[in-house]
């Protein structure tokens, strides 16, 4: 049961990264590709019906994490206290920027919220990348089952902080990748100059994202060659990196051929395969201890009782399927290019 929940959670977090990822990406690139108020309204209208629902994947995944692996939930959240608090503030600021910008017609009001939206979106992308980096690298869990990590490495303490060389690399990777993802989304959902610029930017960011991905992977394997042998020992994982490479190639060609929907689907597939591959390599570890492997919190030691987990899966599984249905419905209802008139309700 712990294994089932491990992969349910990995799938939910992956859905979150793909979905909120594109609206983070729109935030990252919109100052560059959308030049005036009319274009920025189009960019925001493109994510208008989405972003709030996308964010629910994080909240729902958080709830499921809490339920299935409470010991890991407690350890992770109190160990990464400050990074999490800052993340919460960023989420709040970002939501405010999206909600408040359209409410007042004033150039300075809108410019200010545009900057907040861009800054908070970029910071959130980095945060997600750094979080993934911490999970891959491990954290200093000790015999108590908890840890306490500083924000940065080398700031008056010898222990690795939440942000060190490797996790900074994963942070930059996430920033560039989600920028490309969001630009592809805008190219697909909008028209005219805005779409052209978004497509051109996506085509520039895409190879940079792949380069950052290769660098982060290399750093990971260099730090800990055991990852490589784990991948080698699990043939069921091999299709995932292969899929990521294929998605990277298809995405590049689709951007060149102006097949925007295919480009967006490719960047989505790239994120999905990459994250599921990460989960597949880490399994069963949830939080790897850098102090002693014996302190690692894994899907067995942290799990709620098996009976409760089965009941939980029976209750929550169908509801998750219904939630996926909502998103299909949403994609269909708002298919085609974005309609600004419906978004600006004043």
């Amino acid at each position: 049961m712990g294994a089932a929940w491990y992969f349910v959670l990995a799938a939910m977090l992956t859905a979150y990264a793909v979905l909120d990822g594109f609206d983070f990406g729109v935030g990252i690139v919109h100052l560059v590709v959308a030049r005036d108020d009319a274009e920025r309204r189009v960019a925001l209208a493109a994510i208008g019906p989405w972003w709030d629902g996308n964010e629910v994947w994080l909240i729902a995944a958080g709830g499921c994490f809490f339920f299935a692996f409470p010991r890991a939930y407690g350890a992770a959240f109190c160990g990464l206290y400050l990074p999490l608090m800052v993340t919460l503030w960023l989420i709040i600021l970002r939501g405010l920027a999206i909600e408040l910008r359209p409410q007042i017609h004033h150039p300075l009001w809108r410019a200010a919220w545009d900057a907040v939206f861009a800054g908070a979106s970029a910071a959130m992308a980095i945060v997600l990348g750094v979080a993934l980096g911490n999970v891959l690298r491990g954290v200093p869990i000790d015999a108590s089952g908890y840890f306490h990590e500083d924000l940065f490495s080398g700031m008056g303490s010898h222990a690795a902080g939440a942000i060190d060389g490797f996790t900074a690399a994963t942070g930059v990777f996430a920033l560039v990748l989600l920028g490309a993802h969001g630009a592809s989304f805008l190219a697909w959902k909008t028209e005219g100059e805005l779409a052209t610029r978004a497509r051109a930017l996506a085509r520039r960011l895409w190879p940079m994202a792949l380069a950052a991905g290769v660098l982060a992977t290399w750093l990971l394997f260099a730090r800990d060659p055991a990852f490589f042998s784990t991948v080698a020992a699990r043939p069921w994982l091999w299709p995932l990196p292969a899929g990521a490479i294929a998605a990277a190639g298809i995405g590049w060609r689709a951007l060149g051929a102006r097949r925007d929907r295919l480009a967006f689907l490719s960047s989505s597939a790239f994120i999905v395969t990459m994250l599921l591959a990460s989960a597949g390599v880490l399994y069963p570890a949830i939080l790897t201890s850098t102090v002693d492997p014996a302190f690692t919190i894994d899907a067995r030691s942290a799990a709620t009782g098996s009976g409760t987990l089965a009941v939980g899966l029976a209750i929550l599984g169908p509801a998750l399927a219904v939630a996926c249905g909502y998103f299909v419905f949403l994609f269909r209802a708002f298919r085609g290019k974005v309609d600004v008139a419906a978004y600006d309700h004043d």
Binding site: A60, G63, F65, T308, V311
Partner: peptide, 12 residues
């Protein structure tokens, strides 16, 4: 978490 995580997850 094994108890109230259930209701919080259900809420989401």
């Amino acid at each position: 978490g094994g108890v109230i995580g259930l209701t919080l997850a259900m809420e989401g």
